[in-house]
Computed example of a mutant assay.
Amino acid sequence: MADEAGLAVITGASSGIGYELARCCAEAGYDLVVAADEPEIARAAEDFRAIGAQAEPVQADLATAEGVEKLYMTLEDRPVELLLANAGQGLGNAFLDQEVADIRRVVDTNITGTILLVHRIGRDMRLRNKGRILFTGSIAGFMPGSFQAVYNATKAFVDSFSWALRNELKDTGITVTCLMPGPTDTEFFERAGMTDTKIGSDPSGMDDPAKVARIGFEAMMRGDPGVVTGFSNKIQAAMAHLVPAGMLAEMHRKMAEPGSAKR
C-alpha cells in the first residue's frame, strides 16, 4: 500500500466518470479497491495497476445489501482514506411505461446501496476522525426530470444527502463533497435507453468524463462542499433556483422525451 496516500474505494469504476475518478486516485498515489456490477471491472483494475497503484477489483451488485457487504468485507479492516460513491444508473422513458423492476433498481443503486456503503465506511472514518467522501450527484437533481423522473429524483436525494451529511460532520476530520456534472460523454444514455432523445444523441454537447472527474477529485481533496462542472451546467443550476418547477419540467421534456432527437 502507498504509505503516504492510503486506500481509496471507488464504486462504478469500470467506465465513465467512475473509471476516471479511480485513475485520478491512482495517479495521486492511492491504492484502490474498485467496484462495479460487471466483469469489466477486472480490466479497469489492470489499467490502474499499469499506473503503479495496487488495485483490487470487486464485482458486486451495489444495488443490494449483499453486494455492499461483499465490497465492505473485501476491505478487511483496512482504513479508507477516500470513498468515492459514484455507482449510479439511469432510466429514460415515461414513468408509467417503465417496468417496476427497472425503477426499483435505479432507486436501489443510486440511493439505497449508496447510503448503506457510506454508512459502513463513514462509521469507520468517524472512529479515526479522518477521511474524505465524494458523492457523484448531478445537476439533474435540480430539475423535475420529465421522461427521466425517477433518475432525477434519486439525484435530488444524493445532492441533498451529501450536503446534510457534510453539515453533520463539520466538526470532524471528515469532509464530504458532491460532484454535480451535467450530460457527460459516457455509456449512461445508451444504458438508460435514451439514445433517441435530444439530450442523449449529441456527444458534442456533453462534457469529457476525464475532465469532470478531475474537477471532482480536486474539489474533494480541497474539502469543497460541492462543485458543478462546466459553464453551461453552472448556468442551468443557477436557473433551477429561479425558474418555476413546471417550466423546468417542460424544458426537461424537450430534452428527454423519446424521439426528441429528431425534432
Rank of each mutant, 00 (worst) to 15 (best):
I215R: 13
R104L: 11
T136S: 09
Y19P: 00
F48Q: 02
A213E: 08
T112S: 10
P183G: 10
R191P: 04
M251R: 13
T109Y: 07
I199R: 13
D47T: 14
P209T: 02
P225S: 15
D185W: 06
E76F: 06
A2H: 15
Y30I: 01
V106D: 01
A53M: 12
T11E: 05
Q54W: 09
G182M: 04
T184I: 04
L62R: 07
G145R: 05
G6H: 06
A94W: 12
C24M: 09
G131S: 05
E66D: 15
R214S: 03
D159L: 11
E56T: 15
M247P: 07
T197M: 03
P244H: 12
K130E: 15
N93V: 09
V80H: 05
S201F: 00
R104P: 06
G16A: 03
A164F: 07
E4P: 00
P57A: 10
S14G: 02
K211N: 10
L242K: 14
D31R: 00
T74E: 11
L96R: 08
H119K: 15
F135D: 06
T195H: 02
D202Y: 09
N152Y: 14
A85N: 11
G141S: 02
T74W: 01
V228T: 09
A101S: 14
T172F: 10
A256F: 10
I139C: 04
T112L: 13
L165M: 14
A149K: 06
M206T: 01
G52L: 07
V107T: 07
Q148V: 13
V176R: 09
A219T: 05
T197A: 00
D61V: 05
L21M: 11
L248P: 13
V228D: 00
D224E: 14
D207P: 08
M180I: 03
V80E: 03
E81N: 10
M239N: 12
H252R: 06
I10K: 07
V80C: 04
D159M: 07
M143K: 08
D102V: 02
G182H: 06
K254M: 10
V158W: 04
Q98L: 07
T74N: 08
M1Q: 10
E187G: 05
E20S: 06
D202M: 09
R120V: 02
R253W: 06
F95Q: 08
N93A: 12
L32D: 07
L117K: 08
S201W: 02
F231R: 12
V58T: 12
Y151T: 00
R43L: 12
K170P: 03
Q59R: 15
T114V: 13
A210I: 02
V68W: 00
L179M: 00
I133F: 04
R128L: 13
A63Q: 08
G230M: 01
M180T: 07
D207R: 12
